[in-house]
Design a binder for these strands. Sequence first.
DNA 1: TAGATTGTTAATCGATTAACAATC
DNA 2: TAGATTGTTAATCGATTAACAATC
Lengths: 213, 213
Amino acid sequence: MDKSKKISTAVIRRLPKYYRYLGELSKIGISRTSSKELSDMTGFTASQIRQDLNNFGGFGQQGFGYDVSNLRNEIGKILGLDRKYKIIIVGAGNIGQAIANYTGFYEEGYDVVALFDKNPKLIGLSIRDKTIQDIDDLDDFLELNEVNIAVLCTPKSVSQKIADKLIKGGIKAIWNFAPTDIKLPKDIVLENVHLNESLFALTYYYKNKIIND
Amino acid sequence: MDKSKKISTAVIRRLPKYYRYLGELSKIGISRTSSKELSDMTGFTASQIRQDLNNFGGFGQQGFGYDVSNLRNEIGKILGLDRKYKIIIVGAGNIGQAIANYTGFYEEGYDVVALFDKNPKLIGLSIRDKTIQDIDDLDDFLELNEVNIAVLCTPKSVSQKIADKLIKGGIKAIWNFAPTDIKLPKDIVLENVHLNESLFALTYYYKNKIIND
DNA sequence: TAGATTGTTAATCGATTAACAATC
DNA sequence: TAGATTGTTAATCGATTAACAATC
């Protein structure tokens, strides 16, 4: 690790797309591809795709291209998809439940090991074999169980407080769905999904389309 | 419109953050701010903030700074938040319901006017006073009602087909939650929320944190 | 007026694209 | 071998940062 050259986040965010398309090629029985073909599928230039991949090593063969399943495996390894992750969901409302129910994550090795909420109407309900627990039991749970990733689906008014709790419990990665920024020690990995910002951007482009023509 | 200089998407995606922080300043009674203060809050450089804003006009005053509520209003206008939008949700499972239930959107002028699903167990249920309708009634609904934005929360296997239907019905903007890319005529505005790609990126950074120290 | 902070131009930095030699 | 396509270096493009004159 620490190959001196830092990989830009733009590169990292393209890798999942390569991974997904390679999976689709694999599924329809195609075993060999090229940066040109991947370019047609993803919309990124062939040159950029080769640049991206060569940040991590030469996975292709001159004159031939790339072996689909090998390349997919390698990208999976880069992203860390070659192992399992235990995740907990904090805030088991609609979004929390949606994530717990999404089977795509299980297939890639993410296991929801627990859900927490403070709403008594939700506590005790089962989502995919896991019972929603009282948020007051979160500390104890973290003490007794190894957890890799916490998904934060709480209302924004409490998300900072709960994030602090998660950190104290040893969590190192937070996937945040609360429409607010949370402050964390900088050794903690945070990925925000700000749906309102996404909708506002959509609105901007929609509005300008409408005005322009 | 069409002020010759094209605004980059990076700029557009920062605007909602300014908008949000200005709202927070407003809420705690602060009426005046500066690019320096906004920099401290958002983490973007003061220089970048001034550059961003000056793409759209001079909203500040030399030696003084920016009027909080005026600037917020102006950004709102740029984003198109000074009007109402009618949105429909196609696929009323967990994610669809989560969006229908999220009050933050109502506050900004987004109205969910209908939800659709093909699951008989969901059809007829009410979410915030709207009854989930049979997806087969979508065409008729679009013919009779004006809709600005469609939120696509269907399984990926059917999302392209349903997207085509939406376009045929006159929809010009799609907010896509299906974990797949959909192909649309280029006058249609599309915003993808690819949760799997977001989680994979988080995983990459998590993994490398762990390895590095 | 003096101090502050914008608006804007210029400099830097980084990311994307183009080109091509290496080589399968 | 000839053809194809990579890996990689160089050129270009665009976005961010720095600097400072304008001005409130």
